[in-house]
Every structure is written in C-alpha cells, then in structure tokens.
Amino acid sequence: MKALLDRLAPLALGLIGLALWEGLTRLYAVPVYVLPGPLLIAQTLWLDGASLLGSLWITLRITALALLAATLGGVGLAVVMAQSRLIERSLFPYAVIAQVTPVVAIAPLIIIWADNTTLALVICAWIVAFFPIVAATMTGLNAAEKNLRDLFRLYGAGRWQTLRLLRAPAALPYFLTGLRVSGGLSLVGAVVAEFVAGTGGAETGLAFRILESGYRLQIPRLFAALVMLAGAGIAIYMALDLLSRLILRRWHDSALKEPS
C-alpha cells in the first residue's frame, strides 16, 4: 500500500502541475510562441514524432559512441594511472584540464580539426563524459580492504593477478556509479556539440531541431523535442541503473532490495 503511494505520489504531482500549466495558459491566453500548453505539446509530439525520432536517433548514436569511448578511455586511463603514483601525478592534471575546459569553447576547434562531423561530435561528447568514469574507477581500484591486499602479497600475487582478481572487482561498484553519471553527461555533451556544430552535416540531430524550431518560432515543436530529450536522458539513466543492479546483485549493499 505504502509502496503504491510512493510511486503514485510523484505521478500525481506531475499531473497536477501539467493541469495547472494547461489551465493558466488558457486562462491568460498565453500565445503559443511564448509558452504552449501541455496538450498542444503532446499533439505536436504525436504529429512531428516520426521526424523528431529520426533526429533523436542521430543524437543517441553520438551519445552511445561517446559513452563507449568514455568507458574504454576512462577505464584504460584509470588502470594506467593506478599502476604508479608517478604516472598518476603526471597524467591526472591533464584529465582535470580536459574536464574543466568548457566544451563549447573547444568544440569549434575540434570541428575544424576532425574532417568528419560525426567524429567531431563524438569527441566533444566524450570530453564531457569521460572524467566521472576516470575518477570513480581510480578511487575504486584503490578501495580494496588493506588486509585483502596483504593476503594477495602473502601468496606472492603478481601485478596482473592483483589487478584482475582484487582491484578490478573492488572497483566495479565505483565504476558503475561513474558510468551512470557519464551516461547522462554523454547526452548533454552530444547536444552541446550539436548546438555548436549547427547543421554541419547532412544528418541533423535533435539539438539542431531545437535551434531550428526556435528560429522559426515553432515553440510547440521545440518543447516536443525537449520532452523527447528529457525522456531519453531518463531512459539512459534507468538503463544504466538497472545494469549496475544486475551486476552487483549478489554481493554489494547498494544493490540490496529495499525493505518495503
């Protein structure tokens, strides 16, 4: 009963909000090019859905490629840095620099350098997304219990054995936390990069559709695209959350079923 209420409460709140929004836009006769009501947005979503979905697909492809690159690059970098203090000291500052430099500032350069627009967009999104994975995985690689590390030393375990059997599994929950953050950031990165690139290629992603709708004052369509984008972000998060629960199911406290 309580569990049901927990689920219904946010839904009900959302519906009340939407109803208020619809009611107020009608009451004050707000022009649709300023703020369309939710019903109109839903209708636009229905009518323009097919063409918007095509654009969403393009954005999601860039997101997925960026997340893949961030995962491979992030884990690789973390493993390399975890090998020695010196390597970590020398590399980590550059990872931080890449993280704190606003991607909009370097995106034009990347677009000029990379001769393929898709590649340029993936690189931009990757820069935005990779840091959480690096930071989390690095913490995790050093998180194994001290006595366990001693146990491995006692049995003369080599560097590779220790990495594979001790440090990597210990890092897994941390990595998955980083992955969930990076999943959302990949989408943000892809959208920001598309904004900067404009209509660089023949394929136009969702971000460009948003820009275009703005220029043409097709505000309902802009909102429809936004709804789609938010939905995609939520779906990515939920998928990665589910993935990490499945992987950690048997041993990690974070994946425990909550008592209801």
Binding site: E145, N147, L148, D150, L151, L165, L166, P169, A170, L172, W251, H252
Partner: peptide, 9 residues
C-alpha cells in the same frame, strides 16, 4: 587475520 577478510564479490 583478525577480521574475516573475504572477497565480497
């Protein structure tokens, strides 16, 4: 060891 020190995974 004084603690069990098992690999939880």
């Amino acid at each position: 060891f004084q603690e069990p020190t098992l690999m939880p995974w």
